[in-house]
């Protein structure tokens, strides 16, 4: 229940924060994962840098064909954002599945993404959205794709001293349908499996399919074989079933108390089918 002692800084500027992080401090965003771990003394940082007071790190802005979401934007801000609900509904929908009301009020997109819990919700959506993640260090800033960002369980492309500064998602115009479908781990609310689907049709053919999967394995990933198999099709129930089966194909699935690998693989197929059907149904 009680964390170890640590030093605390709450810089007002990002540069100041990055300077401290470069010296080995650890960033604190919403704290929804980090603070419980500190209370159980599973995480014992010596120096915490609170990103909460940095001006202009919490925002949702449209710019051309993309939407920029600042790192300290809360899950609640994302789920309730009219801009995202209208133009990138997959991200808003996914945010609404995270944790609970209180967690969504505090937890941030940057914190969640950087934590890279293999059963977190956002990574599935970010994969399907082909999101770009802006990483900022004391000296430089770089952009990585979601695909390259999630490396392994709790492991990302972040280098020491870097933080997630922003997430960039596309504006999904007419003709796009999306859905996030999730199997809840009943005790914790994390995803046993979560599937995010983003489809675009051209005429009656599916011209683009993006499928992001979380919970199933060591990291969130894009089911590219399934995506490819769907593109050019109309999306009949039989096609959806066949494509859904590809989502889990060849995946080295996690196994734990709440779901064996076999069951997870099966659920991924079932929920992929549900997400595909729902996304198709939502194409305006």
């Amino acid at each position: 229940m009680i964390p170890q002692q640590f030093e605390y800084s709450a810089p007002k500027t990002l540069d100041e924060a990055l300077g401290l992080l470069a010296e080995g401090a650890r960033p604190l965003a919403g704290g929804m994962s980090l603070i419980p771990m500190m209370k159980l003394r599973l995480a014992n940082p010596e120096h915490l840098v609170d990103l909460g007071r940095i001006k202009d790190l919490s925002y949702i802005r449209e710019q051309g064909t993309v939407i920029h979401v600042g790192a300290t934007t809360t899950h609640h801000d994302v789920e309730s954002s009219p801009l995202l609900r209208g133009k990138c509904p997959l991200l808003a929908e996914t945010a609404s599945y995270i944790g609970d009301v209180q967690v969504r009020n505090m937890g941030t997109i940057g914190g969640s993404v950087a934590h890279a819990d293999p059963s977190a919700d956002y990574p599935a959506a970010l994969q399907a959205l082909e999101a770009k993640i802006i990483l900022r260090g004391a000296k430089s800033e770089r952009t990585v794709t979601a695909e390259d960002f999630f490396v392994d369980t709790f492991t990302t492309a972040l280098e020491p001293g870097e933080i997630v500064r922003e997430v960039i998602v596309p504006v999904d115009g007419d003709g796009t349908g999306t859905s996030y479908q999730k199997v809840l781990q009943p005790a914790s609310g994390f995803a046993i499996v979560g599937v995010a689907v983003r489809l675009r049709k051209s005429g009656d053919k599916i011209s683009m399919a993006r499928i992001g999967v979380t919970g199933l394995s060591n990291r969130a990933f894009r089911a590219k074989e399934a995506e490819k198999a769907l593109e050019g099709r109309t999306g009949t129930p039989a096609e959806i079933q066949a494509v859904a089966a590809l989502v889990a194909k060849g995946v080295d699935a996690n196994s734990d108390l709440h779901a064996s690998a076999d069951y997870r693989l099966h659920l991924a197929t079932v929920y992929a089918a549900r997400a595909l059907a729902a996304a198709l149904g939502r194409i305006a």
Partner: peptide
């Protein structure tokens, strides 16, 4: 583990679990 909600208070108008926030924040 911030899963029971018994500590919920309103912080700047939003319900939060006060066991998962440092006072200094």
């Amino acid at each position: 583990t911030s899963l029971c909600g018994a500590c919920t208070v309103e912080l700047n108008g939003k319900a939060v679990k006060s066991c998962a926030v440092f006072a200094i924040q």
